Simulated assay, not measured.
Amino acid sequence: QATSVANAMLLFATAPFMAAVLGWIVLREPVRPATWVAITVAIAGIAIMVADKSGGVALKGSLAALGSAFGFAVFTVALRWGKSGEMLPSVFLSGLFGIIVTSGICLFLELSLVLSVRDGGIAMGMGVFQVGAGLILYTLGSRSLPAAELALLSLAEVLLGPLWVWLFIGETATLNTLTGGAVLLAAIAGNALSGKRRRPPPITSP
């Protein structure tokens, strides 16, 4: 709400960098050189996607987008840290934390906590399918992929975003979006194909 969608997408794409650094610091999890290259290429692809989108950029919105990227990186590293146990309850806990944080924000901004039937239905659908199911699959994948590669694969959301708005809203993709999306897809596919070691290194306790 405080910055452009393009700017928020680009800043959120820093999550793999944050996850790689946090994974190396907290888990002593090495990052393959090919993954670093793929992250760089992915960032370049997203930059191409948003290069033709202009709009005012507010500092508050930019900081919020970076905070979202950092939170996603922390969530990824936490999943890897607890991979030997059952981490699916963390998805439930994330929902509880989301309720607490969002309620606090609404109260601070003096926004109503009451939803209309239509908005409540949309929220429930997104909570179950768009967020809930996605986080469950992401959590299951965290058992066999390093933190940096998990975050990199999540960037496919940026690639598929233009497809969803085209299908449901009729918003057409620009040449920059198609070109950048192709670069991003190449980065994700290249990283997956370069991973000869299918199992990540064991996490050693500090």
Rank of each mutant, 00 (worst) to 15 (best):
I48G: 02
E29F: 01
A51K: 04
F70T: 13
G61Q: 07
V26C: 12
L66M: 12
D52A: 09
T14N: 08
A51R: 08
A64E: 07
G67P: 00
V41S: 14
A42R: 11
A20C: 06
T35S: 10
P30L: 05
V77Y: 00
A64I: 13
L79A: 10
I25C: 11
A64H: 04
A65Y: 07
V77D: 01
A65S: 13
A2K: 10
G56W: 02
V77K: 01
R32E: 02
A65E: 11
M18N: 07
A69V: 05
A2W: 12
L27F: 13
R80G: 10
M18L: 15
A51N: 00
T40F: 14
T3Y: 02
A20H: 08
G45Q: 04
G23L: 03
A58T: 13
A6N: 10
S54P: 00
I48Q: 10
W24C: 09
I46N: 10
G61S: 05
N7S: 10
P33M: 08
M18F: 15
T40R: 08
A47C: 09
G61K: 03
F70M: 13
A44F: 12
K60V: 15
R80N: 09
L63C: 09
V21T: 08
F70E: 03
S4E: 11
A51I: 09
L22C: 10
V5H: 04
A44D: 11
T76G: 03
G23N: 03
F72Y: 12
M9Q: 13
K60A: 15
A34H: 05
A20R: 03
I39A: 10
A13D: 09
